[in-house]
Design a protein around this nucleic acid. Structure first.
Length: 498
RNA sequence: GCUCCGAUGGUGUAGUCCGGCCAAGCAUUCCGGCCUUUCGAGCCGAUGACUCGGGUUCAAAUCCCGAUCGGAGCACCA
């Protein structure tokens, strides 16, 4: 039967279907849904975590892991742990301990519990001691090159076979500050024949004598991320871990700790890299920029930090929708400011009041022979918000954008938005009575008593011009007609997007 | 070089696990038009993709093999 039908050929089949079963040709419009996929092995509540290192505040890239984890905890219920990973004293900005939670709060991420790894050192030591006793950890007293060369060749260093007692003795020496940096380390025993050299016996603890911002010089032996993460993921009861593909190999390493202790492993997910164009994100670059005065601070609008994006007026909801839309694919992608801004516009448009901001202002006289009145709603679709009203007596001055002035042809009729018709003659724009004609070019304007206003753009340029008086007392996100959305704060504004 | 991962229009995604409803959906951008006293919003339309080559099958974006391209890791960083 099937063979018979298939042998008919596409056109013949279409013909038969069209004649005899026309109802099959009606296509339902498929709904688009941007939902995150279900997680594997969810039994009731989930426990998830975000694990930033405190090297600075969060940037737009970090917001992905925060949103993804938060979304799932919101969906299934459970705990969302913020774990600050500060086990490398060389890479800590003390301010980050405050800034990170503030960023998360602004994003609407509901952290139910916070832990700081540097306050859990005794826990790591205790588990290390246990794992030394069970033969999973050993201490080397060698420079790293020797150790590294040996494992590249799948060879065991002699210490690998030392007795637990011997290792514990050395471990105590490590704890008691007996060695200099680089002279000794604690190693996780994995598999020297693993095809991926970096997964073979990896370093679990190393010496670092840089004073720690929180614990000072109390400790000199710090766990590496792969060790402390494994211990904490287990102890905190993580059910699901979502992080970037840069951790793919780390996940493999951490599994050895779980297996060594017979612990139940969380479900792991890794999302791909996102290239974020036109953004300064690198913490070291930003820090250096702030130090040299190139940037005004972490919230400089030229930066891609959440602080900067917040200052420009982005809605936290935009981040959420964007990252949910991006999902958890392992393939790399390019961040789209177009899409991001479009989402943001959708969110803010309805609640943004409209104003006139004239950039590059030039004063002109309207030469109006009658009094004029402008009566404009604060929002074109929302008369409930009220109206902006300005009165103009005979021969009023107004400001218009010099670029507008120059782009109007001699003799051309234009419309000054919500004010009157005008015509360019002899290089000047003058009032003409409204004859009701349509489709004229529309330009905006500002009354002479407008305030001086500056707008800082993310590309580093600054627009300065005139802002209509009724906008003076209002702060927050507003739309400057024919210019774009800005976030206003006093006499300055920050450019959001078109 | 070694190990691992990935590949759907310009961009982002849906579909891939469990082959047929996919002659491939949605969003965004660009282009054309409408509407509009904003360059915002809205409406209509158009262009545009399953990396390539084999294989399996009645049937492949989907399964298998290979190639190509891209990415990550190869730290006593996270």
């Amino acid at each position: 039967m099937v063979d018979e039908i298939n042998s008919l050929g596409r056109e013949k089949i279409d013909e038969i279907v069209a004649n005899e079963y026309p109802e099959f040709l009606i296509k339902e419009k498929r709904e688009e849904k941007h939902e995150l996929p279900e997680l594997r092995n969810v039994h009731g509540r989930v426990v998830m975590r975000m694990a930033p290192s405190p090297s600075g505040p969060l940037h737009i890239g970090h917001s992905r892991m925060a949103i993804l984890n938060d979304e799932y905890v919101k969906r299934y219920g459970g705990e969302l742990i913020l774990r600050i990973e500060d086990t490398n004293p060389d890479n800590i900005d003390p301010d980050a301990y405050q800034l990170i939670p503030e960023d998360l709060k602004w994003l609407g991420v509901n952290v139910t519990k916070s832990v700081i790894q540097s306050s859990r050192m005794e826990i790591y030591y205790r588990y290390a001691r246990d794992m030394i006793k069970s033969g999973h950890l050993y201490v080397i007293e060698r420079d790293q090159k020797y150790f590294h060369d040996m494992k590249m060749k799948s060879l065991a260093v002699p210490e690998r076979n030392a007795s637990p007692e011997e290792n514990e003795e050395k471990f105590d020496r490590l704890l008691n500050n007996y060695y200099d940096e680089g002279q000794a380390a604690v190693v996780m025993k994995t598999d020297l024949n693993h095809p991926n050299e970096s997964i073979r016996d990896w370093i679990a603890f190393r010496i670092n004598k840089t004073p720690h911002p929180l614990t000072g010089d109390r400790y000199v032996l710090y766990p590496t991320m792969n060790f402390s993460v494994s211990i904490d993921d287990h102890l905190l009861g993580l059910t699901h871990v979502i992080r970037g593909i840069d951790h793919l190999v780390n996940t493999e390493k951490q599994r050895y700790v779980f297996r060594a202790n017979n612990w139940k492993e969380p479900e792991y997910y890794h999302y791909g890299f996102i290239k974020i164009p036109d953004s300064v994100l690198k913490t070291s670059t930003i820090k250096e920029g702030i130090r040299t005065g190139r940037y005004t601070g972490w919230d400089d609008v030229r930066l891609g930090t959440l602080m900067a994006l917040r200052k420009r007026g982005y809605s936290p909801e935009t981040f959420r929708r964007y990252w949910i839309m991006s999902g958890m694919r392992e393939s790399n992608a390019v961040f789209s400011w177009d899409i991001f801004d479009s989402i943001d516009r959708e969110i803010i448009d309805y609640k943004s009041m409209r104003f006139f901001f004239v950039n590059n202002p030039v004063k002109i006289n309207l030469e109006n022979n009658i009094d004029l009145k402008s009566h404009v709603p604060y929002h074109p679709e929302r008369p409930d918000l009220g109206f902006r009203e300005y009165d103009f007596h005979v021969n009023s001055d107004i400001y218009i954008d010099e670029n507008d002035l120059n782009s109007i042809d001699e003799g051309e009729y234009i419309r000054l938005k919500d004010l009157c018709m005008a015509r360019k003659a002899g290089g000047k724009i003058s009032y003409v009575p409204d004859d009701g004609r349509r489709k004229l070019r529309v330009i905006h304007w500002c009354p002479v008593n407008s305030i001086d206003f500056k707008v800082y753009r993310p590309d580093g340029t600054v627009d300065s011009g005139k802002l209509e008086p009724l906008a003076e007392s209002l702060n927050g996100v507003a739309q400057m007609e024919r210019y774009g959305y800005i976030n206003k704060s006093g006499c300055t504004g920050y450019y959001l997007h078109r």
